[in-house]
Structures are given as structure tokens and as C-alpha cells.
């Protein structure tokens, strides 16, 4: 299946912070097209009279009371940080 015409591959790659070669664009475009085709099978299901929902189960109001519990120590919180400084996570400079 070739890549669909309305697939904005560059846009999707950009949102995912991926930089793709021409060859990869061709290959992934085709694969995404296949996935979309497969998911499109759902369009054949008759949903007349079915109320739209975000969940399959009729469960609501799953919550906890507002009572604090202990969290992580600074040491544990930073354990996976590739780099730390002043008890903070170091990331490449971002300026919006």
C-alpha cells in the first residue's frame, strides 16, 4: 500500500522530534498507510445509537482524598538523571 496523499509525514515527524531520511520517509509512510488502513476497518462497525465514550467501562469518580503521603528523596528523584546540578535535572538549554 503506498503512502496516502493526505498523510502529513513531515509534520508528524516534526511533532515526534524525528528527522527522517528520504528513504525512511518512503518506508515509514508506507507502513503508516498500512496501519491507517487497518484501523479504518473500524469505520465499518455500525455504531448507530451508541453514545460516544472515552471508556468502555461504566466506572466514574475514581479518586483519593486530599491527604499527602511521603514522596521521593531528592537523591532518589535524581537517580535516573543523566546529569544534575544544584539538585536539579540538567537539560539542553531551552528558551521559549
Amino acid at each position: 500500500m503506498p503512502q496516502p496523499n493526505d498523510l502529513k509525514l513531515d509534520h508528524i515527524a516534526n511533532l515526534a522530534r524525528l528527522s527522517l531520511t528520504a528513504e525512511e520517509k518512503e518506508r515509514f509512510g508506507r507502513q503508516l498507510g498500512d496501519m491507517l488502513d487497518y484501523v479504518a476497518l473500524l469505520n465499518e462497525v455500525d455504531v448507530e445509537g451508541v453514545e460516544p465514550t472515552a471508556h468502555a467501562f461504566p466506572v466514574v469518580n475514581v479518586w483519593a482524598q486530599d491527604v499527602p503521603e511521603p514522596g521521593l528523596s531528592v537523591e532518589d528523584a535524581l537517580r535516573n538523571a543523566p546529569e544534575r546540578r544544584d539538585n536539579m535535572f540538567v537539560v539542553p538549554k531551552v528558551v521559549e
Binding site: D66, P70, L72, V74, A77, N87
Partner: peptide, 25 residues
Amino acid sequence: RSKMFTRVAAGFGLPENTLTDPVVL
């Protein structure tokens, strides 16, 4: 007293990264 989707305490002016838990991170 606690955060929106986890029960570690919420607060202002505390030392950096002392109000975290696995959900926050």
C-alpha cells in the same frame, strides 16, 4: 495539600525536587 493526580505534597518555596514521586516524574 497534595498534587492533582498523586498524593505527594504540593507546596511553594521548598528546596528543589523535594516534592516529587514516581507519578510526578
